[in-house]
Amino acid sequence: MSGIGTGYDLSTGTFSPDGRVFQTDYAQKAVDNSGTVVGIRCKDGVVLGAEKLIISKMLEQHSNRRTFPADRHAGMAVAGVAADGRSVVSRAMAEANQYKSIYGEAIPGHVLAERLGSFMHLFNLYGGYRPYGVSALLATYGKEGPQLYLVEPSGVTYRYFGTAVGKGRQGAKNEIEKLKLGEMSCREGIQAVAKILHQVHDEEKGFEMELAWVCEESGRHFQRVPQQLADEAEAAAKAALEAEDMDD
């Protein structure tokens, strides 16, 4: 896929001779370099977790959000360019709001995911725009139960049991595959996510973890995991990792 230097990779409005839109791939690259974001669907809800690098010690805690509610029952974790992420979240909020205005009930997860996919896809069609540098994990809990979706910069949308995007995605996906997601509660889920994020994190730099969920325990509302629970999960995850290290 080398389009570098050919001139066919400078605009979203340009196909390369072998039929690629390189700008879309490059936008995906921005996501692949970003902090890891993990999502898993447990039996009673969905857990999202994001790894946030701390760029300054003078930052307030919880600055640089990576998880955002889009409606009461739906929320997202974004990997990639943070500003683009907020823009996608704003669109999600608008879609959810508009759906509720027209149909009088909460937007189903698959509709929201599809609409976001279409929205992000539009930015791959015109030379005047660039694709979003964002992959968004979408967690919803509506009539259809808890669901997890992934929307990519190209506009492609998937539904997942569990997935990861960003720098440590490969390692994280391997770990997720080992989990018994169908038997796991969200309480166990946050610990699993915390553990995975610590596992794939590149040791040298500090990071802050952001955990959010939508589950029975949160009243099917998308919210950040209460600080105390998040701290407990993180401590348990660290302990588990240390124990594993000892075994090795």
Partner: peptide, 17 residues
């Protein structure tokens, strides 16, 4: 750098110059 001319151009590394 041919990727730094336009705000709508991603560089191959996923940056916007």
């Amino acid at each position: 750098n041919q990727y730094d001319q336009d705000v709508t151009t991603w560089s191959p590394q996923g940056r916007i110059f």
